[in-house]
Design a protein around this nucleic acid. Structure first.
Ligand SMILES: [Mn+2]
Ligand SMILES: [Mn+2]
Ligand SMILES: [Mn+2]
Ligand SMILES: [Mn+2]
Lengths: 219, 219
DNA sequence: AAATAAAATTAGGTCAGCCTAATTTTATAC
DNA sequence: GTATAAAATTAGGCTGACCTAATTTTATTT
């Protein structure tokens, strides 16, 4: 059996290795898990014995295939639950993460698959994060940061690269939500702020800070 | 904060004190939790320090008001989740208990209340067990064992007094489900087996063993 | 290439939640 | 009421998942 702590380690190792590929450092894991680095070293060694990760002293940890499979399953559960919370129970997108952090550890394959079907086999969660299927496969990710776009492009808002409540609430306050059509009227050369027209109606200006965390696809 | 172990102790103390009122014995708790009696003694003492229970050496434990409140909340969650699993995800009534055992520990008041509303504020779970409201109050229980009835009575099957999978599956196999109307055609004097007509159609005979675990209300 | 800083590891705890074995207390039988 | 059985407690341990402080390794400056 796999413990709660192990599940959280695996999930976070996966997420960190997604960003900076290669071995995940002890300190980055410690930071993500809010656990002392010494404890992480210890734990990771035990996980290596159990073949969930490979570990090289002073270099870091990498998921084995077995570990990756578990990590993806937890991520799948987390995101499916978030979809349920938002779509069925009408939670806001900035209210679901902590609840999903708990629900992701509920262990029942039958439950996951039924939930998935009940939700219509969604491929993305309320924040636009892709949901792996039962085999751990994602659909192809075609998104990129709005910041990478050029003036006069028409794009669709499909996700966020930053998941903090403050950022999500900022977007909500500014009436920006997933699915919105954004037209880039102009990009200010000096500070790279974006002048947008949202859904062919409202005009708004967003700073580079914001724009880099908005993920879009070309419309 | 309250730990998983504490929640399970509280829930089981509540359930055992429901049956045999008075203090809950160490051995009955040990048996229910599948934990060694020595460990239970220890744990219960710690819970007494935290004012969740009162404890008298060699006599047993009783919930305090605070402890009872927590116990009822867990029972509420367990039963609400069971309703969801059966009504929304189409699980069978003998498939939900283990999943609900996990879900009952998910901690979010907002989640419970939204789930409750979404389900239409049910007052009983798929096994006929009453669901306490947010304040811990139950509706009045009017059920009694079918065994206590007399011949020629017409009654409605509303719950089970025995929750084992084997019993639930036995009932399912015999096409008996909650809501069914039962007419007691005759009670065999020798062994107290019940000759029933189910939903004005099927005739079936059930042993005393079975009949004592079927809960009904007079129709 | 030394010196310094940062990251990682080792050594030696703690605490929760369990266990077994031994002992004491309470209940039941004779 | 004494003997026996059952229940409960005490004593002493163990493991998982953390911690701090000290040390070692690796990276960055100068
Ligand atoms: Mn989340
Ligand atoms: Mn998400
Ligand atoms: Mn149940
Ligand atoms: Mn139930």
């Amino acid at each position: 059996m796999i413990s709660l702590a192990e599940e959280n380690y695996l999930k976070n190792i996966y997420k960190l290795s997604e960003k900076n590929s290669g071995a995940v450092t002890t300190s980055s894991l410690a930071d993500a898990l809010q656990i002392n680095a010494a404890s992480v070293t210890d734990f990771v060694k035990k996980m290596a014995e159990k073949k969930m990760v490979t570990y090289q002293k002073s270099k870091g940890a990498m998921l084995t295939e077995a570990g990756k499979k578990i990590a993806l399953k937890i991520i799948r559960k987390h995101r499916l639950w978030e979809v349920w919370l938002v779509n069925t129970l009408n939670f806001k997108w900035d209210e679901v993460h902590d609840i999903a952090e708990q629900l992701e550890h509920v262990n029942s394959d039958m439950l996951i698959e039924r939930l998935d079907n009940h939700l219509g086999n969604p491929t993305a969660d309320p924040h636009g994060d892709l949901i792996p299927d039962a085999k751990g496969k994602f659909i192809k990710d075609r998104s990129k940061p709005l910041l990478k776009c050029i003036a006069k492009q028409k794009v669709k808002f499909i996700g966020v690269a930053e998941h903090s409540n403050s950022f999500l609430q900022f977007l909500t306050k500014n009436n920006l939500k997933i699915g919105d059509e954004l037209f880039i009227e102009r990009i200010e050369a000096y500070d790279q702020s974006f002048h947008l027209k949202i859904n062919k109606k409202t005009k708004k200006v967003f700073s580079k800070e914001v724009v880099k965390n908005i993920l879009i696809v070309l419309a």
